[in-house]
Design a protein around this nucleic acid. Structure first.
Lengths: 341, 341
DNA sequence: ATGAAAGCGCTAACAT
DNA sequence: ATGTTAGCGCTTTCAT
């Protein structure tokens, strides 16, 4: 590792025979540089292969960096969001950096702080567990967008899916097929403060509400694990142990539904012959023919793109807060059908 | 967004009635601060909620940041690698940030530059497409580890899986079961320079070699798509169109194998009754009972952890270059069996 | 239109 | 052991 000195703005200035101020102006397209000077500076930049030093910029102005907080990178739905965000940001000078929050609140706080300390120009927090107050605090420091939480805030913009509607679509679908004993796989709450704000709690509460509305309050059965393959598997084994056996499972996320399918299969039961299974997120795996999982589509690409747009708007100066909500749709596939008998 | 001024080292110094040097020393555990002073400074830091400003640190010394270049975040195998890396780095003061390379070479170069410009202290590049020369150039600038490429370099450390051995395990397994008409799904080459260095080309070449060694050179059938669900699906449809029909498919990655399973199913054929399917990576989905995909385990967690360790060692000063290679193992499951008839 | 110069928050060489 | 101070590379007044 040879520590070769980087080309700096001073090198460019010297090479182009102008002041560093001039170079800075050209770089930022700022007022006060003649076309002739612009050309000379640009030429020097190209010849020397100059690239701005982000840290030095950060000391004074922008870093041209958008920070994203992700709980983890296992859920392919997050990849859709990132695709949308990247597409939106690609045409600008901004760069997206991702930090993974990890399982707990402590790791998440550390991850958010890491982004703040690195002076990102804007931060997108995806399904954060942190308290409302902490989110507001972050949003006071820098432009912020929160994706996947159902709270109002004047400090940041919000992008979400109408989880209540989406979850009701699934439960109504299953009830419409004739199911009564429908189980639900939810996620253990790791958040601080109002649990009600996060998707898993809204989906669960909606499941409960719709069941009650149809007079099925006594049939409510929730397994609280995690929205992973393992979580879905374990939760389903738990639900299958009940008697009389349920006839349908609504997993709060596709990832968990895949685990559910495995558990049902392992128990020697068939889908949808014995048990119907539905998920949420409409990931690509769900669409594959041998899986054919009924799911809810919430268009992560659009959510990500919108989050990117809102964030850039805020970076440019908007302060009024905005909410963008996606209306999900049910995508019925072969994993759900009328109950046996 | 209220732009509240951050607490700086000067604020801490004033509050603790010491010099900024003293604070800096305490922060870095540097020599020259009495226990008494340490305590006072620590107290002031806590009271004021001070956190170092990463950009300012970057101007002089370290950023305490490890940068990771990832092609994309869809492949769950990458999540294993990141888990390993995070575990290794978690106990240190370093923070991991991720940038996604995107599909093409151009995006990848931009992503790497973004990391370099942000002065990360070390960079982990996962299966980069960039030319050897460019990798060396990056490694000359900062400590670097490359994961998933089979080249020797004196500039960076390398972590890889023995893809040649892993691929041979699969092909030998299928041939051992009695298959002769075995197809392979490879990935389109987007790299610059020696294609031979990347996993997909090694797996493909190994497939070809082993087929020939068993006198099956005439049966070689490769579909070159991408290692995604879609790529596996399309590639398999292509392979299934051949006549006489092949009896086994070795997809170079689990993601592609899932698409292959869908295509086989959609064609009205059964797995493994009509067609055996094998993947590579041993992702969690592969282990699920209703998928039961034969795959190759290459322990991404260990690879990630090792990459992290090597990187930290380099940050601490090691310059001699190291290679770490994981020996993969075959994980046979129900998706492969003897051919029909 | 152009450039000189101050300063962002920190580290480290150098006094004391 | 403690503090003074000169930068790191850039942006941004403020003169000219």
């Amino acid at each position: 590792m040879v520590t070769r000195r980087r080309v700096t703005i001073a090198d460019v200035a010297r090479h182009a025979q102008v002041s560093t101020t001039a170079v800075s102006k050209v770089l930022r397209n700022a007022y006060g540089a003649s076309p002739a000077m612009r050309d000379r500076v640009r030429a020097a930049i190209d010849e020397l292969g100059y690239r701005p030093h982000a840290a030095a910029r950060a000391m004074r102005g922008r870093t041209f960096t958008i920070g994203v907080l992700l709980p983890h990178i296992r859920n392919p739905f997050f990849a859709d969001i990132l695709d949308g965000l990247s597409a939106q940001v690609a045409e600008t000078d901004y760069q997206v950096i991702i930090v993974a929050g990890g399982a707990g609140l402590k790791e998440e706080v550390r991850a958010i702080e890491a982004l703040v300390d690195r002076q990102v120009d804007g931060i997108l927090m995806i399904a954060p567990l942190t308290s409302r107050a902490d989110l507001d605090k972050v949003a006071e420091t820098m432009p912020a967008v929160v994706l996947g939480r159902h709270e109002k805030s004047t400090a940041y913009d919000a992008v979400d899916d109408d989880d209540e509607y989406g979850a009701s679509l699934v439960v109504e679908h299953l009830i419409g097929l004739g199911h009564r004993r429908i189980g639900h796989i939810s996620q253990k709450d790791a958040s601080r403060g109002r649990r009600a704000a996060l998707p898993y709690s809204i989906r669960e509460e909606t499941y409960t509400r719709v069941m009650r509305e149809h007079g099925l309050g006594d049939e409510i059965a929730v397994a609280t694990t995690s929205w992973t393959e393992e979580g879905g598997y374990i939760g389903t084994r738990e639900l299958l142990a009940r008697s009389p056996r349920l006839t349908a499972i609504f997993a709060g996320a596709d990832q968990a539904a895949f685990g559910a399918l495995a558990a049902v299969h392992e128990a020697g039961l068939s889908v949808p012959g014995d048990i119907s299974v539905a998920g949420y997120d409409n990931t690509r795996m769900a669409a594959l023919d041998h899986i054919a999982l009924t799911s809810v589509d919430q268009d992560g690409v659009v959510m990500g793109r919108t989050a990117g747009r809102l964030l850039l708007e805020r970076v440019e100066g908007r302060t009024a807060s905005v909410r963008f909500s996606v209306t999900p749709t049910l995508v019925p596939r072969r994993s759900t059908a009328a109950p046996p008998g």
